[in-house]
Design a protein around this nucleic acid. Sequence first.
DNA 1: AAAAGCCCCTGGATGC
DNA 2: TGCATCCAGGGGCTTT
Length: 271
Amino acid sequence: MPELPEVEVTRLSFADRIAGAQVLAVRMGKPLRWPLGCAPESLVGRTVLQVRRRGKYLLVDLSDGLLLLHLGMSGSLSFESQQPPARTHDHFDLTTTRGTLRLHDPRRFGAVVFAVDEGDAVAQKLLGKLGVEPLGDQFDLKVFAQILKKRKGPIKQVLLGGDVVVGVGNIYASEALFLSAIRPTTRAQRLSHARITRLHTAVRDVLARAVEKGGSTLRDFSNAQGESGYFQLEAMVYGREGMACKVCATPIQSIRQGQRSTFFCPSCQRP
DNA sequence: AAAAGCCCCTGGATGC
DNA sequence: TGCATCCAGGGGCTTT
């Protein structure tokens, strides 16, 4: 479910409401990707200071330590003042004085991990190799071009890797490459500077636009207020195999790259 | 260092 | 209706 836009939209939907709340209780369901890393009850009494995002991780800063949350493939968060009883696939509850933050995650690829600070070994294992934030000032065109020149792999998979630029998942990688008219199979180091420039802009544009539209709701994504996203209605290629390209009417093609589906227009995105 | 595969897990859609 | 197969928004880990 969650690429950068969905994670950011989720953050925006509860960060202000939970800030300043005090932890009253913690409930764990089935195991997630990693153990919490501390005794759940040890979090009781701490205050939630703020919620930040790094790549596809949410960082919940506490008065002492922080929680790293990841939504995996199927996770979503809810934050409600009156929380109904836990249902199937609700695997983490952080009950506070302002409401309960709940992780619902059927596939359990998600995670909630406690870290003493951002620099500790646990946090660094997850955050240490992340690339730059695409929506921030650090996403520099020259640096981006310089790194791509050293990468031999297909540009789609370089984007998905997350070590060059974070937050671009399977939907937005296909979309950004369509917007920049680049064939996803093109080796990164073979891209012209003009194409890299277009891609740099497209990555920022598509992610920012998706945040504006509340993210993409393919199956059941919703933000922490239960609201769906609408970007999927604007997708140019993702999930549109066999359908007419919205620009030139050529049928959209689907291929496999690294065990993931890639969608592109064979006419608009020439090698 | 970088690339390619392999898993983790559940549920929905499709086909026979 | 039942059962098998495939696919899904991620990414850490191991092996080349």
